[in-house]
């Protein structure tokens, strides 16, 4: 009996001390105070052109990269980029390893419930990618119904493939994996971001793919995602407006070939 009590006490002491250690550093402050206080804005990214990628010299460049750097400068903090797994983006955000998701992040109603979005800055749409040999058959959305669609799990493409095209979903870990599925023939087509498709389809191992432009999908918008309820989104909005006004954002967009999609 004595030993049982001892065991229980032991467990309690361990638990309490763990919580105490972890909780010791938490303070009462708003998200903006927290971020501006540590003087760094950690942006969660995945590497893809033209948003965030490495150039020949090994420097991180891209539209979102330079955009984030410009905003950070306006706010007096340093922009840092953390490569993450896209599927873990929300947990990365909530566990504070990153401060925002800034990587061609599509706005939708479901995400709005858990994430604080800034104003939208880029127009995007989902597009259907097929084998170039089959391109002529894809003339309308109706043709896609019931076919196998490779999509990234949790992506805007999945919603489009499921609700708009009424296709059978082949879930993938990344948008590029979805393209690979089409190449290997295990899916009929993939639904991915048009910005990604434009930069990858027809290149390298994806040379045999093509974008089916005849299949029209709903347009969508990119914005920056902060922790739900964060007052930082508002501050970033202010900076974006300034960058739009002085033409900086336009210059960056032209540099990476997305000026046509920029929201002014």
């Amino acid at each position: 009996m004595k030993r049982k009590i001892l065991a229980i006490v032991l467990v309690l002491v361990l638990t309490v001390s763990c919580i105490a250690v972890f909780a010791a550093c938490s303070k009462d402050q708003t998200d903006a105070e927290y971020i501006l206080g540590k003087k760094t804005l950690v942006c969660g990214i995945t590497l893809y052109e033209p948003m965030n990628y490495f150039n020949e010299d090994g420097d991180l460049i891209g539209f979102d990269t330079e955009f984030a750097e410009a905003v950070a400068e306006k706010l007096g903090v340093e922009a840092k980029f953390q490569v993450i797994k896209w599927s873990s983006k929300e947990i990365e955000l909530n566990s504070k390893y990153i401060d925002c998701i800034w990587n061609g992040f599509t706005v939708n109603d479901e995400r709005k419930q858990n994430i604080e979005f800034t104003q939208s800055y880029l127009n995007n749409s989902q597009c259907v990618v097929v084998k170039a040999a089959n391109l002529s058959a894809y003339t309308s959305a109706a043709y896609c119904e019931g076919k196998k669609a490779a999509v990234e799990t949790g992506s805007a493409g999945e919603t489009a493939a499921d609700e708009t095209l009424k296709a059978t979903i082949v879930p993938c870990a990344a948008q590029t994996n979805a393209l690979t599925e089409v190449m290997s023939g295990s899916a009929d087509f993939a639904v991915v971001d048009v910005i990604l498709a434009n930069s990858m389809v027809g290149k390298g191992d994806y040379a045999g793919l093509a974008v089916a432009t005849s299949v029209a999908l709903e347009p969508e918008e990119y914005a920056i995602g902060f922790r739900k309820g964060s007052d930082m989104a508002e501050k970033v909005n202010g900076a974006i407006k300034e960058l739009l006004a002085d033409g900086t954002l336009q210059t960056i967009a032209e540099k990476y070939g997305v000026a046509g999609q920029l929201i002014k």
């Binding site: 972890f22 909780a23 550093c25 938490s26 873990s88 947990i91 909530n94 566990s95 504070k96 390893y97």
Partner: peptide
Amino acid sequence: YVPGMLFDNP
């Protein structure tokens, strides 16, 4: 992730 999520301490 859990230290950051539960205890606000990454």
